[in-house]
Nucleic acid binder design. Structure first.
Lengths: 187, 187
DNA sequence: TTCATTTTTTGATTTTCGTCAAAAACTAAG
DNA sequence: CTTAGTTTTTGACGAAAATCAAAAAATGAA
């Protein structure tokens, strides 16, 4: 889905606001393996994945790579706190497929936020979706078995198995890849 | 902290917007045990806890009460999806102390959002804080032991032990109260 | 195709935590 | 103070999942 269409779905903005916002996004074709941002970077863009797949992760104290979130096409993403407060990002964000990505720079974001208060309506809508998803995740993280959580994930995101490795899915769920492998073998 | 002060801290609004928004909040003194909303209700207000303590929870399939979140003073809260989409709430929200609560009705919220797009800036700021907190929670829920998560909670919210029962804290962390009791005994 | 690398699976063992049950400690109302 | 109700603690046991180690399978580049 292209950005303009996506905007119409998420929040009803005036034609003028919509145009201003969309114009500020720059289109890029980026290869698998490209980092949108890395730990300690100040993340200065907000991104929209038109096509492709991204994954955020960080490294635990014990040196293990832990997936935080997956972003398929039609996702907005940024290192939210880093972007908004110009602080160092805590995650890495890597494209795991060749992707078409739109990005808006922080300076433009600020300018539009001042000129067009409607941008806040849009950001609100994006954050709202994020909050809903995180709420789901948190609910399922309490007192559900690893198996239930895995099955739920696959139901919600049937393509995840084709797009992310078992290890990445496991650490997203907060379990080891051995456990996930055994869950899958059971069926 | 009173609402006006809180607003100044969270987002810089014009004097006019701020006044409009603050005026729409109604002050109430409510007793311990009062439900701000219940499961299946359409939650028609957004709340600000000036003084007191609230807890959201729901009932699991196995009939167990699971705490979703705690709200000390200076917290905004609502059944976010219920409020925004007029759908049935999934949680209960109960005051666990006598409290002073400000509430804004949905109709006023909508009206102000149309008249004063700056309200969205404010909502954005509130949601942003929420998203940060949930991110913290999710990070700590992966591959940290129950004990580490408990100690982290106590460090972040030192008064939680005085304000919530062990069972409520345990289910918030996603562990049983027996396990939490043993963690505490170890020290 | 072959070889090297990465990912996934399998096995044995240990640790963590849940479950069930009952006792102890705490709270609040009469 | 007494009693009933609630919350917390303790114990024995079992289930779920982590860890460590190694084999098997899949992937990708030369």
């Amino acid at each position: 889905m292209k950005i303009p269409q996506y905007f119409k779905n998420i929040a009803s903005l005036s034609a003028e606001s919509e145009k201003t916002i969309i114009t500020a996004f720059k289109r890029e074709e980026l290869s698998k393996g490209h980092f949108l941002f890395q730990q300690e970077d100040i993340c200065r863009h907000i991104y929209f994945i038109e096509q492709g797949f991204a994954r955020t992760y960080n490294i635990s104290d014990s040196g293990r790579e832990i997936t935080n979130w997956f972003f398929p096409e039609n996702s907005f993403l940024t290192a939210i706190n880093s972007f908004y407060n110009s602080s160092p990002a805590r995650d890495f964000c890597i494209l795991t497929e060749d992707s078409i990505v739109y990005s808006m720079a922080y300076a433009d974001f600020k300018r539009i936020l001042d000129d067009q208060p409607e941008l806040a309506r849009f950001c609100f809508a994006v954050l709202f979706e994020l909050a809903k998803q995180m709420t789901e995740y948190i609910n399922s993280s309490k007192f559900q078995t690893a198996e239930d959580r895995y099955l739920e994930l696959v139901k919600m995101h049937p393509t995840i198995l084709q797009r992310a490795s078992l290890g990445h899915i496991a650490s997203f769920l907060g379990i080891t890849q051995e456990t996930l492998s055994r869950i899958r073998a059971k069926k």
